[in-house]
Design a protein around this nucleic acid. Structure first.
Length: 481
DNA sequence: TTTTGAGTTGTTCGA
DNA sequence: GTCGAACAACTCAAA
C-alpha cells in the first residue's frame, strides 16, 4: 500500500537538517513531494534583489542535489504560491502540505493566501517555526507587549531555560514521484543576464553543506577571538553566516547550540561566545520588530522623522553607490559590497552613517541599495540596521552619534589593509595617510602614484562641516515637534 | 499609578 | 597625550 503523499513546501529553509516541516512529514508516514515556488508577485516591493537571486539560484542547485542523493526530485514552479500549490494538489494525490513559517509582511500574507486558496479542498496544512530561535511573538515584556529595546529583549531571552535543540536530518523514504511538471531552474531567471557575479563566486559557496563547513571553521579559528576581532574588517574574524541564515541553509538553533557546546569544552571562551550569541539575538530582535511593526520597512518608526529634511542630491547617492566618496573606509566598504555581495558589519555602520548623516541622503535609499547588492539581504535585519543608523528606529543611535570616517578607519583598520584590498589605487600609501589621503604630503602621494581628484576622488564633503549640517537638520525635527 | 534606572556599536572639546 | 563631560530629552521596562 502506497503511503499518502505530502507536499513539503520549501521557502527560506533550504536545508534538510533541523527542518521541522520535512521531519514531521516523514515522521507522519508520508511520502514527500518537495516543492519550491518562486513567487516574485507575492514578494511585491521586496522582491529579492539581484545578489540575493544569485545566491538563491545556487542554493536551489544545492538543495536539488541533496534531494537527488536521497532519490527525490525538487519540483520547481514559478507564480503565486497559492495558485501553484493548488495546481500541484490537483495534479497529484497529495493530501497535506508541510511548510515552515516566514515572518516578512508579504510572506505572512502569502501564507494566508495559500490557506484560503486551499480552504475548500480538504487539504491539511501544517506550518512550523524554524527560522528563529523562538517564534517572533514568544518573547514579550511582562505586560505582553513587544519589546522596543534590545537589552531587555536579550535578558528575557536568556531567562528562558531551554532553547530547543535542532532535529536531525530525517531518513527520507524511497520516492515514487508522480508524473508532475517542473520547470528548469534556469527558467526561474535568478541569474544575472550578463555575468557580473565572478566576485560572488570567488567569495561564496551557497548551500547547506557549505554552511555547515563555514560554521565549523568559524568555531575552530575565529570564535575564541570574536569579541576582539569582530569589529576589524581587515581581519577574518566574523562568521559570515548571514546569507546561510537568511536562506535557511543552516538553522539558528544549530548555530546557537554549536557555539554553546564549543565554548563549553574550552574555558575562557565565555565572553566571545556570549558576544556572538548576542549577534544571533539581534537577528531575533529584528524579526520581533518586523513582525510587530511591519510598516517599518518603509516608514520611520519615530514619526517626527517624516519631516526630516533629507537631501535629494542624486549625485551624492551615486557617488556613495559607486564607492567614490573620497573617504577610503567608506569606499572600501561599498566596493567590497559590490564585489562580493557582502560587507563587514562595522563597515556597514560606517557607510550607513556617512550616507545618512554626512550626505543627508535618506536611509530608505541606502536600504534599497543594500537590498539589491547584498547576498544576505534580509528584510528584518536591513530595516533594523538602517533605522538604527538614521536614528529613527525603535532603539536607535542617538542623533549626535555621527561616525567620523577617518577615526573609524584608523581605529578598526589600523594598518589600512582593508582599504588596500578594496581601494587598490591607494595601496601604495603608508598606513598613516590611508584613511585621510587628502592630508598626505604631496611627495607621499606622488610616490604612491595617487592624484587626488584624478586617480582617487577628493572628499565629497568635509566631514566636520557635514557633521554640523546633520546636527542642524536634527534640530529642525526637534523644533517641529 | 508612579517612579526609577537605563538605553550596541561615538565624537569633540576643554582641562 | 589622556581623560571626563557634554552632547537631549525621551521612552521603555520593570518594580
Amino acid at each position: 500500500m502506497r503511503k499518502p503523499l505530502a507536499i513539503v513546501w520549501f521557502r527560506n529553509d533550504l536545508r534538510l537538517a533541523d527542518n521541522p516541516a520535512l521531519s514531521r512529514a516523514v515522521k507522519g508516514g508520508f511520502e514527500i513531494l518537495p516543492v519550491y515556488v518562486h513567487s516574485p508577485e507575492d514578494e511585491g516591493q521586496w522582491f529579492a534583489g539581484a545578489a540575493s537571486r544569485w545566491w538563491l539560484h545556487h542554493s536551489l542547485v544545492a538543495l536539488e542535489q541533496s534531494l537527488k542523493d536521497t532519490g527525490h526530485r525538487l519540483v520547481l514552479r514559478k507564480g503565486r504560491a497559492g495558485i501553484e500549490l493548488m495546481r500541484i494538489i490537483q495534479e497529484t494525490s497529495a493530501t497535506t502540505i508541510f511548510f515552515n513559517h516566514r515572518y516578512e509582511p508579504w510572506a505572512r500574507e502569502q501564507e494566508n493566501n495559500v490557506a484560503s486558496a486551499l480552504s475548500k479542498t480538504g487539504i491539511t496544512i501544517f506550518g512550523f517555526d524554524s527560522s528563529l530561535l523562538f517564534p517572533p511573538t514568544q518573547i514579550t515584556s511582562s505586560d505582553g507587549s513587544p519589546y522596543k529595546v534590545f537589552t531587555p529583549f536579550w535578558r528575557k531571552l536568556l531567562s528562558i531555560p531551554e532553547v530547543n535543540h535542532p532535529i536531525a536530518t530525517p531518513h527520507l523514504p524511497p520516492a515514487h514521484p508522480p508524473h508532475l511538471s517542473s520547470i528548469n531552474l534556469n527558467a526561474l531567471e535568478l541569474l544575472p543576464t550578463f555575468d557580473w557575479a565572478a566576485g560572488l563566486r570567488a567569495s561564496w559557496q551557497p548551500g547547506e553543506n557549505a554552511a555547515t563547513r563555514r560554521l565549523k571553521s568559524f568555531l575552530k579559528s575565529c570564535l575564541s577571538d570574536y569579541q576582539d576581532s569582530r569589529d576589524r574588517p581587515d581581519l577574518d574574524g566574523v562568521s559570515r553566516l548571514s546569507p546561510y541564515l537568511h536562506f535557511g541553509e543552516i538553522s539558528p538553533l544549530t548555530v546557537w547550540h554549536s557555539v554553546k557546546q564549543h565554548a563549553q569544552n574550552k574555558p575562557g571562551l565565555d565572553a566571545s561566545c556570549k558576544s556572538y550569541l548576542k549577534e544571533l539575538v539581534w537577528r531575533e530582535f529584528a524579526y520581533h520588530l518586523l513582525y510587530h511593526f511591519p510598516k517599518t520597512t518603509d516608514v520611520p518608526m519615530r514619526a517626527e522623522f517624516d519631516r526630516f529634511p533629507w537631501s535629494s542630491k542624486a549625485s551624492f547617492l551615486k557617488a556613495w553607490q559607486a564607492g567614490n566618496t573620497g573617504y577610503p573606509i567608506v569606499d572600501a566598504g561599498i566596493r567590497q559590497l559590490w564585489n562580493t555581495g557582502w560587507m563587514h558589519n562595522r563597515v556597514r555602520m560606517i557607510v550607513a552613517s556617512f550616507l545618512v548623516k554626512d550626505l543627508l541622503v535618506s536611509w530608505q535609499d541606502g536600504a534599497k541599495w543594500f537590498w539589491d547588492t547584498l547576498v544576505d539581504a534580509d528584510l528584518a535585519n536591513n530595516t533594523l540596521g538602517w533605522q538604527w543608523s538614521a536614528g529613527c528606529g525603535a532603539d536607535a543611535a542617538p542623533y549626535f552619534r555621527i561616525f567620523n570616517p577617518v577615526l573609524q578607519g584608523k581605529k578598526f583598520d589600523p594598518s589600512g589593509d582593508y582599504v588596500r584590498r578594496w581601494v587598490p589605487e591607494l595601496a601604495g600609501l603608508p598606513a598613516k595617510w590611508m584613511h585621510c589621503p587628502w592630508m598626505a604630503p604631496q611627495v607621499e602621494l606622488a610616490r604612491a602614484g595617487i592624484k587626488l581628484g584624478g586617480s582617487y576622488p577628493l572628499p565629497l564633503v568635509d566631514h566636520s562641516e557635514a557633521r554640523l549640517r546633520a546636527l542642524i537638520a536634527f534640530e529642525t525635527i526637534k523644533r517641529a515637534r
